[in-house]
Amino acid sequence: MKVKITKAALVLAAIILISIVFVPTAAATPEDSLEKWTKDHTVKNVKLTTTYKYEDGYLEIKETYSGSELKKKTGLSKFNKEKKIPLEIGTVMVNKEGDELTVTENELILKTKKDGTIKLEKGKENVYTTKISLVMTLESDPYPWWIKFDYPQWTWSMSSGWYVREDPINMVWEEPDIGEVKYVVVNYEKWTDNPSEYTHYVFDYLDNRWEVGDGVAESVLRITGGYHARLWTISTDEEEVVIANAHKDDSVFNWPLGHQAIEYEGAEDEVAGIYSDAGWNVDYDAYFLKNRYLNEYDAFNNGKATVITP
């Protein structure tokens, strides 16, 4: 028995087929795009080898990043970061936890409650390894923060032509230039305008370039720890603003040796308080940057930036 198919039935079937093929999908949101970008640019299982050496009055720290995933994602077999911290012979330093660092001509002796006694003999390398994840990108492929936010979310270091995500942006100054911002902490709080620091960058999408940070800190070396901020002038659709990451470094002799960011929120409030005392308008946690973050040293950022105006 033949089934008679009418012209109207054919038209209806065609309409149904078209509707199935062309079912609209939800457009990706800017937030989804940023999350996908981050996922695509994350390198897992990176081997971090940190080498410490005490030589001629300096603590030398070399960080080497390597691993098969790094090679696969970036083509780099490894890349390095290095810094040298001068230490005066005969120095004995004690931090608030009771850890003690003694500097002699032939060795550094670090006595800690957490890790016991650690000795660095002059000229002898001490090597430690761990596994970490990194978010990395090339100069030509910056993190596109501007599709969702008014200001960058992160700072980035640069090694071997690759930019590596570092600290969260947690402060914004609207209206003043960077000279006015720095003037307050340098002249009223006696911070240094030339601290020892790794160079960090942010990407200014309107100028289409990576901008170098301009640091201020409580002291040049922060041997016993202290507050530190990196600042940038960034172009927006309406004006130029100053942004920063503010954090507190631990002392040089806390383990692991060298400066680590151990505080974001407290540092943000500390710096904001300086401007409040100087008569500026401070709006704590006023802008949501969604860069909530906890680093490996328990420094926490709540994802909101304090906004300051003269």
Rank of each mutant, 00 (worst) to 15 (best):
S19C: 03
Y284R: 15
V220Y: 10
Y143L: 08
V3N: 08
M1A: 10
V135S: 02
I15Q: 06
I89V: 13
D277K: 15
I132D: 02
S251W: 04
W145P: 10
I5T: 11
K148W: 06
K62Q: 13
E175T: 15
N194L: 02
L10T: 05
V46A: 02
F288T: 05
L221T: 06
I85Q: 02
L59A: 06
T49S: 02
A286K: 12
T6H: 11
N208K: 15
T38L: 14
V21S: 03
I223G: 03
G179R: 09
T49Q: 08
G67C: 04
L206C: 00
E268F: 00
I243L: 09
W145C: 10
K111V: 13
D249Q: 02
L257D: 03
G273L: 12
I61F: 03
Y205G: 00
N106W: 01
E240W: 04
F288H: 07
L59T: 02
K113L: 08
K148M: 10
V282R: 05
G90A: 07
E105I: 04
Q260T: 07
K122C: 05
L138A: 14
K72Y: 04
Y293H: 15
E105V: 04
N291M: 08
A26G: 06
L138T: 15
F203W: 11
H200E: 13
E174R: 15
E69R: 00
K7T: 10
S77F: 00
D177Y: 10
A267L: 06
K114P: 01
T199C: 00
E125N: 11
I132G: 00
A278T: 07
